[in-house]
């Protein structure tokens, strides 16, 4: 579904992604693992073209997206859930969802506000509250719900378990499993290996901006030396 081929991304002079190659097959949940600073967020931002790769190519369903502006990429059906959540704090929950709303897309679930409130019952009670009044966990749910309003067929989830309470992490895992069962493809960056194990089929480990491992999570479990080399903080 998504092919990242030999991309190089920079922040100013800092070379963050080095010939990174990555393949996301349709219908899977892929965990993008790696230490702090390995380049997980940059990978996701590069796919979204929020960071423009200096070289290499990215294709989505066979179409090259490297030169497109972010809004066109979103229109193709790629949903982006940023690490810092970036909800609109002065807008209400419902208004936040309205910003994300896009026309229905063939082959993807068409989400409505009510369906999302079923998925995230906490948000239903707070639909008229402003974003700034939400707790961290609620904000995390809102940012996912907002992206789903765009009816994506593929979503980029940047560290959804970061900084939220364990009970929310559990809820988040259930949501991701449900999304997968509805046919969504997910690329999820994670530092929390337990969380990744609960939801992901495949794992890709990156280190210093390059891929160092790719395989199923089961295989990864049987290779503790890889885990220790690249993941133990």
């Amino acid at each position: 579904m998504l092919e990242v081929d030999n991309i190089n991304s920079f922040y100013g002079k800092a070379h963050v992604l080095r010939d990174l190659t990555l393949s996301v097959p349709h219908g899977n949940v892929i965990a993008l693992l790696g230490r702090n600073g390995a380049g997980k967020t940059t990978t996701i931002k590069s796919i979204m073209q929020l960071v423009r790769p200096a070289s290499g190519s990215i294709t989505f369903n066979g179409q090259g997206i490297t030169a497109l502006p972010p809004h066109k990429i979103a229109k193709l059906g790629i949903g982006y859930v940023p690490e810092e959540r970036r909800i609109f704090t002065d807008l209400t929950v419902s208004e936040n969802l309205l910003v994300g709303k896009q026309p229905p897309r063939e082959g993807a679930v068409t989400w409505t506000e009510d369906m999302l409130f079923d998925l995230f019952p906490n948000l239903a009670e707070r639909r008229s509250n402003r974003g700034k009044a939400l707790s961290g966990g609620e904000q995390q749910m809102l940012t996912i719900a907002r992206t789903l309003m765009g009816n994506p067929s593929f979503i980029l989830l940047d560290e959804p378990s970061e900084g939220v309470a364990p009970v929310i992490v559990e809820q988040m895992a259930k949501v991701i499993q449900q999304l997968k069962s509805e046919g969504l493809t997910v690329l999820l960056s994670e530092q929390n290996l337990h969380f990744a194990q609960a939801v992901a089929d495949l794992a890709v480990i990156i280190e210093s901006g390059a891929q160092v491992y790719s395989g199923t999570l089961k295989e990864l479990n049987s290779h503790p030396e890889i885990r220790d080399a690249y993941l133990a903080a």
């Binding site: 809004h71 979103a74 982006y80 940023p82 807008l91 910003v99 994300g100 896009q102 765009g150």
Partner: peptide, 18 residues
Amino acid sequence: VLVRAATQDREMVGALGV
């Protein structure tokens, strides 16, 4: 709503397809 959202975070509004 989009105008108010863009007042706060233009990039995010773009990433949501606007």
